[in-house]
Simulated scan of single mutants.
Amino acid sequence: MPIQYPCITTRNPAVRWAEHAAAGGPKSTLFFRTVEGAGGLTKTQARVLEQKLINQHGLPNLFNKINSISPKKWGMYGITP
């Protein structure tokens, strides 16, 4: 199953997913799962992981509207286009 919406939450993921489902719209029908081994990351580490997933799948192909980290700062975090 391809990634369609990488996202970060500090809350219980099941609660956040339920909010997406209740809101309706395209994200309400997605199958959500956590990334294995991604628990306990700092906010910066989570944003870097999110940005790498966005770059891997292409922002135009995702429900994300913006990059997690500005492209001009990618080099600071070892992120490549």
Rank of each mutant, 00 (worst) to 15 (best):
C7F: 06
P60Q: 06
R47A: 14
Y5N: 12
I54K: 00
G24Y: 08
V35R: 01
R47T: 04
L53H: 06
R16P: 09
A14I: 07
R16M: 09
Q51P: 03
P2M: 02
R11G: 02
N55W: 04
C7T: 15
T34M: 11
V48W: 01
K52H: 03
W74G: 04
T42Q: 09
A23T: 04
E50G: 10
K65T: 12
N64F: 08
S28C: 11
A21W: 07
A22I: 01
G24S: 07
P2R: 13
C7A: 15
L49C: 08
F31M: 07
L30R: 11
A23Q: 13
S70I: 10
A38S: 15
R47D: 00
Y77C: 08
R16G: 00
S68V: 03
T42R: 03
L59T: 11
N61A: 14
A22E: 15
G24M: 10
A18G: 04
A22Q: 15
Q56F: 05
S28E: 09
L49P: 10
G25F: 08
L49S: 00
S68L: 02
A21S: 02
A38D: 04
T42M: 05
L53T: 00
G58A: 09
Y5K: 09
G24W: 06
K72C: 07
I66V: 12
E36S: 14
L59E: 11
Q45Y: 03
K52L: 06
T34C: 13
E50V: 06
A18C: 05
N61D: 12
F31T: 12
Q4H: 13
G75Y: 04
A23N: 11
N64P: 10
A46D: 06
A46H: 01
K65A: 00
P81H: 13
T44H: 01
K27G: 03
Q56I: 05
G25A: 08
A14H: 01
P13E: 03
L49E: 08
P60D: 06
S68W: 01
R11D: 03
T34Y: 02
N61L: 10
T10W: 03
P2Q: 10
N64K: 14
K73C: 05
T44G: 03
V15H: 05
R47G: 03
G37I: 06
H57T: 07
Q4S: 07
P26W: 01
G78Q: 10
T42V: 02
S28Q: 12
E19M: 09
N61S: 12
Q56H: 12
Q51N: 05
